[in-house]
Amino acid sequence: MTIRSFVTAAGLALVVALAGCTSTSFRVFTSDYGSKRDAGYSLPSIPISKVPRKYHRQIVRYDTKEKPGTIIVDTSDKFLYFVMPEGKAMRYGIGVGREGFEWSGTARIAAKREWPVWTPPAAMIKRQPELAKYAGGMPPGLNNALGARALYLHNKRGDTGYRLHGTPEWASIGRAMSSGCIRMINQDVIDLYDRTDIGAKVIVK
């Protein structure tokens, strides 16, 4: 082998090695979107093949100074990160606020609810009068707008009105369609709910 050939081969080997080192995904949970029983409800399976793979729940490399247990919401890329030890995070695909309803800031998880009641705000009812029938609350269930779980966000001024919540509208993941809340596939919000503590820091950017 000539010196030039050796250098070329060594260079290719280095590129391959570096490519392996920069892989960000450690495990993808594509098989976790099947039907399941939960608190008496039959949660339907998600046609996960129709959801882009990048939005499937997965453990990824994630460098941050925030402590484990912190939630970081990237509204631009439509990802939610639950910070884990050793430079890793559980990453979920999300839906975010549509134009005019975007927001950012720091909050905390003040409350957690399984199969919550959804009460549309007065401003939403004004925009969508057909929601007036739920002014007293939409009962929990498979068609409830908050889905299987809701995490309630508060800041120094109190309730922000925003939630991290499930949705029956799985096709909205990866899109900007909500009124500001962060939407998740029901199977994903159940997973996040079980990992998250009351008082956890939430950063939305």
Rank of each mutant, 00 (worst) to 15 (best):
Y162C: 01
I198F: 01
E99P: 01
T64I: 13
A122L: 00
R4Q: 10
T167Q: 06
S104G: 06
R4M: 10
R149T: 04
E102M: 05
A19K: 12
M177T: 15
S23H: 13
S35K: 08
A19D: 14
G147A: 07
D188G: 02
V7P: 09
K126N: 00
V51N: 02
P85E: 02
A150G: 09
R37F: 06
A39F: 13
E99I: 07
I125L: 00
I125M: 07
D191K: 03
R163T: 01
H154D: 02
L131T: 02
Y81F: 13
I125Y: 00
G11A: 13
K205Y: 15
K36C: 07
T70K: 07
P47S: 09
S172M: 09
S25A: 10
I182H: 03
A122E: 06
R91C: 02
T24A: 15
Q187C: 07
A13D: 10
D38V: 07
G136S: 11
G105M: 10
I59W: 01
G93Q: 01
S49A: 15
L192N: 01
K67Y: 10
V16N: 11
N143S: 15
S25T: 15
A10S: 13
K112S: 10
Y62C: 12
N155Q: 11
V83L: 03
I203S: 10
K50A: 14
S76G: 09
R183M: 12
D197I: 00
F26G: 05
P52D: 07
W118Y: 03
K126I: 00
V51M: 12
